[in-house]
Nucleic acid binder design. Sequence first.
DNA 1: GCCTCCTTGATGCAACTGCATCGATCGATA
DNA 2: TATCGATCGATGCAGTTGCATCAAGGAGGC
Lengths: 147, 147
Amino acid sequence: MQSEVCILSEEAATAWARLVRVSQVVLSRVEADLKAAGFPPLSWYDALLELERAKPEGLRPYQLQERMLLAQYNLSRLTDRLKKAGYIEREECPKDGRGQVLKVTEKGCALLRSMWPIYRRAIVAHFADKLDASETAALALTLMKLR
Amino acid sequence: MQSEVCILSEEAATAWARLVRVSQVVLSRVEADLKAAGFPPLSWYDALLELERAKPEGLRPYQLQERMLLAQYNLSRLTDRLKKAGYIEREECPKDGRGQVLKVTEKGCALLRSMWPIYRRAIVAHFADKLDASETAALALTLMKLR
DNA sequence: GCCTCCTTGATGCAACTGCATCGATCGATA
DNA sequence: TATCGATCGATGCAGTTGCATCAAGGAGGC
């Protein structure tokens, strides 16, 4: 590993730098649009969306954490905020005394529905409108390989 | 604007979701490699690199801020940390009594040189090795259009 | 059952970020 | 030159994140 020859082409370095910068810029533009419309951050949307997809069983916190690729303590605090805001409920897990089951509330679903038009418009304006269909498809494939 | 028809294809939505997730994951892997090697975060590297490129004149804080796409207060604090760690110097700007000129120190250049092998290896492992040359080039072009 | 190790989720603390605002200086205008 | 709005950079405060650690409960071996 350590001694392995490690070649980084000029083109790859450029692509790397651009990936870091551009994804940051575009994401922050979308977040800014959401905030300007009075909505919470994208991470709230992501969490609620996963919980809506998991209806009606809900999700264990560690499952949501895996799907969102969040650190455990960050998920714990995100769910605190979501619960305090009334967008999710925490139930005790009948199968595991340590755990919980998270479920989105009706208020949470309503938030998803009201955020989506703004979120969608932001994705279109800052991302989708700047690429044609073949570029979009190629980008999705390329990103897939980076997982 | 508000009334404009706003279409988001399934493919574009997929590409968007992947861009957000993948860039976050890959970036965090690279950052983790740097941290594991005992190095400071990537933002320190970026700042020092810009200042090295700007040698010997240095950069005004607002110029560095524009290049790094950082909020003004974040740049102010980043430079605090870099200065406290001895990687940069702040000089008074002879042309503008409000401002400063930031310059990388020899210690800062040494940090750049010692970080680069680890950083490069991480880029290769988590990014460049997963794509072929044509994908890399296409990705760079596509990302360019998102600016 | 009991011991041990693993998993689940929470939390104290320090560091960092976002927001609003400030003081200082610059530049344009009268 | 005096004034006024704009620009430059710093900072107090609150919210968020990273790190280390903890308590509680589960799962497997004896």
